[in-house]
Design a protein around this nucleic acid. Structure first.
Lengths: 164, 164
DNA sequence: TATTGTTATACTCTATAACTATA
DNA sequence: TATAGTTATAGAGTATAACAATA
């Protein structure tokens, strides 16, 4: 359990990390904004999937996903095949051109990060990745989760919450 | 020095942290979007300052800063006084209403983070803060900076922006 | 009736460029 | 001429709501 000052500082850092994201966005290939890059990356990492699954991985509304997907599909980077098991669904799959684009993406981001993080150790980068992943997990699928009331759960609590 | 796989994973996590930021954005007070919250937070933390200084801290273009500042000024949360030393400049300062708003902001974000990060230790939160801060430093003021990380030591002499 | 996906609309954030007023 | 700040405009990302097709 952390203190209020830490929470405020974390909130500030979360806000500030936007600058890093914007910097990364500036080196993206033409016609491939961040939203498209995210689609390609997730398809490359998790393989073929349906729109709903992609929306879940992107952690954005399906309408947003639909838009991004339409963008990359229009450029021939992915294919949308009808799902034989459910005709409402569409299966998304990277095309060879999409794989190339993904490769180019990887090249650019790797190059930028290698430059900016040249004095970071392997372990430090690993720690940041691990903590950011956990942060994401802790927030979970809260896209539609109403402000949860103070958790009544007490399992595995090693410390009592400070105050309330 | 980290490997390509790590860089790709870090890029992915940076993209994914947007979901957390959006979640935080949803609990902001009325009339106070993320941009306004950032202005209030930085003024509260660093004290009175000029537009250009705020733009630097926000890591966005001055035009963007001007917009956010106009928004919070219109709501009476900050004051813009002319700088006696340079009539082109304006000194920004939180008003009592701005302090109240800042307090409300702090309350909300702290509450949300305390809920979501209830199973994080103080040390873990501290590590994440430290690594994110360092990440930001490593990227530096790269809004228009070509690959040139070495940052000359800043001497914070000149003018001190109002230390209370 | 419920679910999958698309589209229309609106809002926030951002950068570039043109503009003003000072320096 | 150069700098501090404002405003207009354009582009990307997102959410909500209305809609179509299928389950």
């Amino acid at each position: 359990m952390a203190g209020q000052a830490q929470y405020e500082e974390l909130a500030r850092q979360l806000s500030a990390v936007g600058a890093v994201k914007r910097d990364m966005g500036r080196i993206l290939p033409p016609e491939c904004p961040a939203g498209s890059a995210a689609v390609l990356t997730l398809l490359g990492r998790h393989g073929d999937m349906r729109m709903s699954k992609l929306a879940e991985l992107l952690a954005v509304d399906m309408s947003v996903t639909s838009r991004h997907v339409a963008h990359v599909a229009a450029r021939g980077w992915i294919e949308r095949s009808p799902d034989p098991a459910d005709k409402r669904s569409r299966i998304l799959r990277l095309t060879p051109a999409g794989l190339e684009q993904l490769d180019e993406l990887s090249r650019r981001t790797t190059h930028l990060l290698a430059d900016r993080l040249s004095d970071w150790t392997d372990d430090e980068v690993g720690q940041l990745i691990r903590l950011m992943t956990r942060l994401r997990d802790s927030f979970g699928d809260c896209r539609s989760a109403p402000p949860r009331p103070p958790a009544p759960v007490l399992e595995e609590t090693t410390r009592t919450p400070a105050s309330t």
